[in-house]
């Protein structure tokens, strides 16, 4: 049935409203980054820059540690994504395929770990990492980030895998495939969209994470969110530099998400339809 003009107009207005609500903070961030430093704090504040200046962006080059922090963020986010997906795919597969009571309890237990505020496990995690000699290392921070991401990834992947028909896997088994063979040759390729979606979420969680990275890094693996936060000093916030860095910091994620857009949409659709 075709929607009426009024319905379409309402829908369009709603979508526009949602987009504005979501886009406005980012647009304001970009706008502030393009203002001369003095205008960033003008009262009353202006949404659009009165004068366009790239000074905040050129200032970035004067902070060499910032470049290193971006590289650290990328390394840690990729490592964390790799660790999380490697652990979550088999776990989600087991939960999806063996719908036992133990599996359900496991899923709930996994969810409970998500309910614990990260700040409350920060210090114990710090103590563990220190005893393992993993503080101020990429792998240490990546592992810490994985503790946040694994529960979410298992839940997401389990729902994707439940949507894959059992018959596909059974056919492979009939043709002589082992269970692991079926997982790697059949399930993972079919669930690739779901894995891509999950990877994006995991990557983003690590890319933006602050607390664990702060506790576990000193000089070698300082991540970009911490480097950006350093512009909040005791006497105020250097809005211009912070916003320009934040815009630059957001580029890799935006590009990554745009590149993965098709897979993400496909993955989300797949997760919504169960066979």
């Amino acid at each position: 049935m075709k929607a009426s003009l009024a319905e379409r107009a309402t829908l369009f207005a709603l979508v526009t409203l949602i987009v504005v609500v979501y886009v406005f903070p980012y647009a304001f961030l970009v706008s502030t980054s393009l203002k001369p430093p003095a205008d960033a704090l003008a009262i009353p504040p202006t949404i659009l820059p009165q004068r366009i200046s790239l000074e905040n962006y050129s200032n970035i080059a004067t902070f060499p540690s910032v470049r290193q922090s971006f590289a650290n963020s990328l390394t840690i986010a990729l490592l964390s994504t790799l660790i999380t997906i490697s652990l979550s795919v088999p776990a989600a597969y087991a939960v999806a395929r063996f719908a036992s009571m133990a599996g359900k309890i496991f899923l709930i237990a996994v969810l409970i770990t998500r309910l614990i505020p990260p700040v409350s496990v920060g210090i114990p995690l710090f103590a563990i990492m220190r005893s393992l000699g993993l503080t101020d290392t990429h792998i240490g921070v990546a592992l810490a980030h994985s503790t946040i991401s694994v529960p979410l990834a298992i839940w997401l992947l389990a729902s994707f895998m439940e949507g894959i028909p059992h018959e596909l896997e059974e056919a492979a088994r009939v043709d002589g495939c082992s269970r692991f063979g079926a997982l790697f040759r059949i399930i993972i390729p079919v669930a690739a969209g779901g894995i891509a979606v999950t990877s994006v979420f995991v990557f983003l969680a690590s890319w933006n994470e602050f607390l664990f990275a702060l506790l576990l890094s000193s000089t070698s693996v300082k991540t970009a969110p911490i480097a950006i936060a350093e512009f909040r000093t005791q006497y105020g916030i250097q809005w211009g530099t912070m916003t320009s860095l934040s815009v630059v910091f957001s580029f890799p994620v935006i590009i990554f998400s745009l590149l993965m857009q098709k897979r993400i949409v496909a993955g989300m659709t797949m997760g919504a339809v169960k066979g």
Binding site: S65, L214, A229, R232
Partner: peptide, 25 residues
């Protein structure tokens, strides 16, 4: 001499973590 430079409020957080765990970083 190696400086570990952190945001203003994080000086408190980092040192608190050290204090809580008896760390000697």
């Amino acid at each position: 001499v190696e400086f570990v430079n952190v945001p203003y409020g994080s000086v408190f957080d980092r040192l608190s973590a050290e204090m809580a765990t008896g760390g000697g970083a």
